[in-house]
Design a protein around this nucleic acid. Structure first.
Length: 274
DNA sequence: CACGAGACCTGTTCGC
DNA sequence: TGCGAACAGGTCTCGT
C-alpha cells in the first residue's frame, strides 16, 4: 500500500488523532522492543533503545514515502516499503505475528510497526537531511510547477513509467498512483520522457496532482488482505482492473509489464507511442 | 546513460 | 484436494 497518500494518511492520523486513534503528539517514549533486527537500519539496537527512551513526539512530517517523527532530540524515520503498517494499540495487547518493532508510549499506548515481508526500515538520526537527500521534488510542493516538470522530463530519455517511479526524479509515486496518473493523462507508460510535448507534460502534471490529492482525500488505498481504512481502491480507473471495461471508452483494460512492474492501461485511451 | 534481471521476504491466489 | 508457479503497494545492486 504505502505510497505518498497512504504515508500522508498515517501522518495526519498520528498528528491529529481520529475517533479510534489518539494523537501521538506530546507522548513520551518509555520503552521500545525490536523484534526483527534488520528492520532497524541505524543505529545499533542497543544505542537505539537507550537513545530513544525518554524522548517525546513533538511533530510529524513526511518526505516522499518516508514518515518522520520529530522527537525531542532525534528524528525517527520510517519507510513502510511493500507491506509495512503502523498500528496504535495498548501495552497489554497481544503481539501480532508480523510485528517488527514496538514503541511503548506513556499512558498505556503502543505504536507497533507490523511488516509481513520485512522490507520496511527504521532509522533514528539527529538530522534526517542526509538520509533524504537523494529524493526528487515533492509532487504537491508549490515549487514543483508544470514548467519545472516539463524541463525535467526533457532532460532525460527515459520510459515515463519507470521514471515516475524513480524516487530520485520525483518523490512519493508508486505503482498505483503512477498507473492512475498515466491513464488520466492519456499517456502510454513506455513513452519516452523527452518525447512528451509541454502540453502533454502539463496534462500529466495535473493528473499526478489529481490522483495524489484524491488519494489523500480518501485516506489512501486499502487492497488485498490488508485493510487500513482507505477508500481510493473503489475509485481506481485502471489499477488491477485487467479485463474490465475502461470507464471512458469501454475497451478492456490490459496488463503489461514495464520496468519489471505490473502495469495497467487502456490500450485505446493510452495509445502506444511512435 | 538506460534498462532488465535478481535479490530481499512472506503470504495469497491461480492454474493444472 | 494438492502443489508449484505467479504475483504483491518498494528499492537496491549488478550486468549489458
Amino acid at each position: 500500500m504505502p505510497e505518498l497518500p497512504e504515508v500522508e494518511t498515517f501522518r495526519l492520523t498520528f498528528l491529529h488523532g481520529t475517533e479510534e486513534v489518539p494523537s501521538l503528539v506530546g507522548k513520551r517514549i518509555c520503552r521500545v522492543s525490536l523484534l526483527w533486527e534488520k528492520t532497524l537500519e541505524t543505529p545499533s539496537a542497543e544505542e537505539f533503545e537507550t537513545r530513544i527512551k525518554g524522548q517525546s513526539i513533538l511533530d510529524l512530517n513526511r518526505r516522499g514515502k518516508y514518515l518522520l517523527f520529530n522527537l525531542t532530540q532525534d528524528v525517527l524515520v520510517i519507510h513502510l516499503r511493500m507491506s509495512g503498517d503502523l498500528v496504535v494499540e495498548t501495552h497489554d495487547d497481544p503481539i501480532a505475528k508480523h510485528h517488527r518493532l514496538l514503541i511503548e508510549l506513556d499512558g498505556g499506548t503502543r505504536l507497533a510497526f507490523n511488516d509481513t515481508r520485512k522490507f520496511g526500515r527504521v532509522w533514528l538520526v539527529r538530522d534526517s537531511a542526509p538520509l533524504l537527500s537523494h529524493l526528487g521534488p515533492e509532487p504537491l510542493d508549490e515549487a514543483f510547477t508544470s514548467e519545472v516538470f516539463c524541463a525535467m522530463l526533457h532532460n532525460l530519455n527515459r520510459q515515463i513509467k519507470p521514471l515516475l517511479l524513480d524516487q530520485h526524479f520525483i518523490a512519493g509515486m508508486g505503482n498505483i498512483y503512477t498507473d492512475e496518473a498515466l491513464f488520466l493523462a492519456g499517456t502510454h507508460p513506455l513513452t519516452k520522457s523527452d518525447s512528451l510535448s509541454c502540453d502533454q507534460a502539463e496534462k500529466l502534471w495535473q493528473a499526478i496532482h489529481i490522483v495524489l490529492t484524491e488519494g489523500i482525500l480518501r485516506n489512501g488505498s486499502s487492497i488485498d488482505w490488508v485493510y487500513r481504512g482507505g477508500d481510493f481502491q473503489n475509485h481506481f480507473q485502471v489499477f488491477r482492473r485487467t479485463g474490465e471495461a475502461c470507464y471512458r471508452c469501454g475497451t478492456p483494460i490490459e496488463r503489461i509489464i514495464v520496468g519489471n512492474r505490473s502495469t495497467h492501461i487502456c490500450p485505446k485511451c493510452q495509445p502506444v507511442p511512435d
